[in-house]
Design a protein around this nucleic acid. Sequence first.
RNA 1: CUACUGGACGAC
Length: 279
Amino acid sequence: TFTANLLVQLYGRCGCPEIARQTFDGIRARNSFSWNILMAANAQNGHLENAKSVFDKMPERDVVTWTAMMASFAERGDLFRPKQLFDSMPERNVVSWNVLVGAYAQQDQLESSKGAFFRMPCHSIVSWNSMLTAYAQGQKIDRASEFFESMPQRDAISWNIAISTLAQTGDLLKAKKLLDFMPAVGIVCWTAMVVVNGQLCQLEQAKTIFYSMPDRDDLAGTAMVTAFAQNGDVDSAKAVFDAMPEHSVYAWNALLAAYALNSRSGCAMDIFATTRRTW
RNA sequence: CUACUGGACGAC
């Protein structure tokens, strides 16, 4: 069962919910993990109705079941059903509350997010980060900064949220100041900085950040390709692309968009013609 | 072994 569960999960992650289902059907001694994983495999591949029917059919539901179902609806922008599930679940844990905070935030109900956050019996670092994100999404930048300052703990994600929030509002100066205080700036944060600098026509800054980053991954490379493209430098975009060790669909899309944006439709068409469909 | 928060392209 243990191993079979892993297999179900694997198929779910690979975008094969049908095979996940078949594997699940072959498990003799299913446990709550098996059911929860099957449900997630459907939800994560967009088959929300299938996920719901698994939810309805399962013999036992635990707090993970209820919370995962809430999260799946919330991800689709539904607020009503997550609320309903939250109210009817037999028990809630900190994750359930976190999902609720996020569900409100996603529907721009900042006050409700706050209400839930301050009503929850205990907070995890994810709770704090979710609330910080809620302020950011509600465009309450000053509030977000205050909240960030008041947090009892901060992890790399908290810093990334705070810095990106400032940067995305165009306040690169404040963002940089905060960046100087961040204990260990990682690839996620650097990439976010490349993106905003590119968007704000700060190509030199974007370049400097990109080339001084301690390491670069595919996401960072894709971001830099786009930053060059947005600022009219297709050749440099191509150079960054060529320097990337691997080319994902995302990277190809970025290069294609780079050509399209800079009126090099011939090159764009070439890429379109030579890449293969991934679906 | 399962559920919640942060970075890239495109589409909407």
